[in-house]
Design a protein around this nucleic acid. Structure first.
Lengths: 336, 336
DNA sequence: CTGAAAGCGCTTACAG
DNA sequence: CTGAAAGCGCTTACAG
């Protein structure tokens, strides 16, 4: 029977069932100390009345599992969608709600963390690159630290400079793998089309790439971390360095933009120019030519991040590295 | 100054600021009736103490904006990621939190709606196809109805048989558009590779397709609504109907699987077989050949759905049709 | 095994 | 403009 108007309260259930509030509460939460028959009776009455616990009241009173807060830059980006999928999956396994929000710039991140704290989430998963300049993230980091001091749990994805559990995408090593692959194919004039220089993710991938590529890097430019950023980056590059034999985009999403520009210009991949990316988003295998990339298991990273917050708090932050895998497909070939 | 151990309560702030609880509350919520100077002073003290409102207490007491509940099948699927992006964006504009969860089968949908009700969300956006057999969705529909009777707001995406505001993807018309396009190109032997026959989304798209294609449909098969479903569907089809000149996949995600199988077999698209999809997910333009598809503006649909819940409740459910746009790209051509 | 009572942290009439 | 008090809907010691 559905209620109308005001929702049914536990007190209503108790009254109808002829028991005290305490007994009604115990019956529904499954707390020990109520005879089986009575508990069953109460549950029957509750469900007949269409009773739905008020989680706010329960949480306030000290019962209730806390929720999970998840902050991503943009859920429409496959990279974050994958991470979110991992987080939501693990949350469901553990019967936790997840409160999700968008935030990319530091000010918004800070505001969202505050909001999540107001909702008294038990844990926050913050996914999104940190900044090369630690000052940019200082306020958010402080807020996170304060949250942890108050008993909250935090796991970050892709942020180093913070005293919290972290899952670190294997960016430097992934950069090295891509670089080595290109070098092996004989490429000596390589362009790097990167996202914003301010981001750690970009900086780390560049470190790995440059470490191995050395002087073979002839151009590094920074653009929006998006398909269009990659597309316009490639267009620009073709003007300034038409002689490159390979382009590394700092994410698959950007790489897809690069491929689009190359196709538009009638430049063959990989016979004229090789292209590689990072992440191995689901569609990377299905663009054409299929993209060579460094696979980072994003869904697993999201899942691992949330799991870290469910472990007993460690005396010092845990760091987990994601690992990566070079996936060679059709977009890379021997230098011409 | 960050708190440690127990969070600062409003009572602590009031005491430190030398005012009553009531005045402290009014100062922080911005309720009229406190002198500007006093209010400012209280806010200063609160922020110095690192005070963070307890939303559970606030909500219970009757203040506080309610949250939004969002249910999607799987956030890793670009179709739902786009919808979610639209919902999250509008929610943020309106300072609402969104609680997200995965649910595809009816039982899980029901459980998630119940959970959302327990959290006293003000509105629920349910994205995901309804079922052809209304009985499958009956329990969830009843729960939603009860939620609305209790004052909750609901908007569904892709469900017809329910008395709630709805944004309906323009599936039938989209099917017609694709069909007409194929007919215009001279195709008379067309195969439809569909998702589960139990879903309304699938049924509706098929209706539009068949209405126009008529006898030109030589095969309809049902598979998982995924890339791999499309891939194996195509493999099967090639065995049973090697003579088709066009394949319509019932979603872009499936179409990408179809393209993969065709590429693997060395079958040229569109010169040997044309391929079309539905949705226009972001990557549809970047696979190769670029996919001809019926564009459904998913992010806009998500945004519109949430906006419907913020309007005054109507006497009868509002239905909004998404509209669609035929996007002709490279994967379709004249029948051979 | 069951109940009466206090308390969780707020907001909002109701008085002044 | 400000405060004392009741109440939101639960859970959990504390008694019995």
């Amino acid at each position: 029977m559905a209620e109308r108007g005001t929702p049914v309260r536990l007190a209503d259930v108790a009254e109808r069932a002829g028991v005290s509030l305490a007994t009604a509460s115990r019956s529904l939460t499954g707390t020990a100390g109520v005879s089986l028959k009575l508990a069953e009776h109460v549950r029957g009455v509750a469900s007949a009345m269409g009773y739905v616990t008020n989680m706010h009241a329960r949480t306030l009173a000290g019962g209730g599992e806390s929720s999970i807060g998840l902050i991503v830059s943009e859920i429409g980006d496959p990279y974050f969608a994958e991470i979110a999928s991992g987080v939501i999956g693990v949350a469901a396994e553990n019967h936790r709600m997840v409160q999700i929000s968008h935030a990319s710039d530091p000010a918004t991140v800070l505001a969202q963390i505050r909001l999540l704290r107001a909702y008294r989430v038990g844990a926050i998963v913050l996914a999104g690159s940190g900044h090369v300049d630690p000052a940019a993230d200082a306020a958010a980091d402080a807020e996170l630290a304060s949250f942890q001091a108050a008993g909250g749990r935090v796991a970050v994805v892709g942020r180093h400079h913070i005293a919290a559990d972290a899952v670190l995408p294997d960016n430097v090593a992934a950069g090295r793998s891509i670089a080595r692959h290109l070098l092996d194919l004989g490429h000596r004039r390589v362009a790097l089309i990167a996202g914003p220089a301010t981001l750690n993710t970009v900086a780390d991938r560049l470190v790995g790439l440059r470490e191995v590529l050395g002087d073979s890097v002839v151009s590094v430019t920074h653009h929006a971390f998006s398909r269009d950023g990659g597309a316009s980056g490639a267009a620009e590059l073709l003007g300034t360095h038409p002689d490159v034999t390979a382009i590394v985009a700092l994410s698959d999403v950007m790489a897809i933009g690069v491929l689009a520009t190359l196709r538009e210009r009638g430049i063959r991949v990989p016979s004229e120019i090789s292209v590689a990316g990072f992440d191995d988003i689901p569609v990377a295998a299905d663009v054409s030519p299929a993209l060579t990339t460094a696979r980072l298991p994003m869904a697993g990273i999201g899942a691992a991040a949330l799991r870290l917050t469910m472990l007993d708090p460690a005396s010092r932050p845990r760091r987990k590295t994601s690992g990566h895998e070079l996936v060679v497909r059709e977009s890379t070939g021997h230098a011409r």
